[in-house]
């Protein structure tokens, strides 16, 4: 497994304590799991995602990601409505391992309050958290 200094954590993203990442794309927000999470989970073989139109509050479980060894819940970093899901993950869940921030994105949401993104951790704060 990767050492902390080996992790790929882009500067322009925000991160959560549950290891999700958040990226603003015009009015919407894309969400996935970060390099640390995919590395910890190992080979990801199944991703269960919500339906377009579903509404969630911050902290709600929106899906699960399963590796060979374990299942992990996915939590909403901020509240919002599902605008799109990454349907490719049904056939190629391993994209979450190989490309967690691009091909491996999970959901795109219309945030209830875009300003809430600013309350999430940036890269440095997230790394500090990981260091414990």
């Amino acid at each position: 497994m990767k050492e902390l200094n080996e992790l790929n954590l882009p500067e322009d993203l925000r991160y959560t304590e549950d290891h999700e990442w958040v990226r603003t794309e015009s009015a919407n927000v894309k969400i996935g799991i970060d390099d640390y999470a995919q590395d910890q989970l190992g080979d990801i073989v199944f991703v269960e995602l919500p339906q377009v139109g579903d509404k969630f509050a911050k902290g709600d479980e929106f899906g699960t990601v399963e590796s060979v060894k374990a299942v992990s819940e996915l939590y909403m970093p901020i509240g919002g409505e599902i605008f799109a899901i990454n349907e490719n993950l049904e056939e190629t869940p391993e994209s979450v391992n190989s490309s967690p921030y691009d091909d491996g994105w999970m959901i795109e949401i219309k945030p209830d309050d875009p300003a809430k993104i600013e309350s999430l951790m940036d890269k440095n704060a997230y790394l500090e958290m990981l260091k414990g």
Binding site: G42, D43, V45, S67, V68, K69, E94, N97
Partner: peptide
């Protein structure tokens, strides 16, 4: 260790 190069590849 539980996995070395990844369970699927192994």
């Amino acid at each position: 260790r539980v996995h070395k190069t990844g369970i699927v590849q192994e």
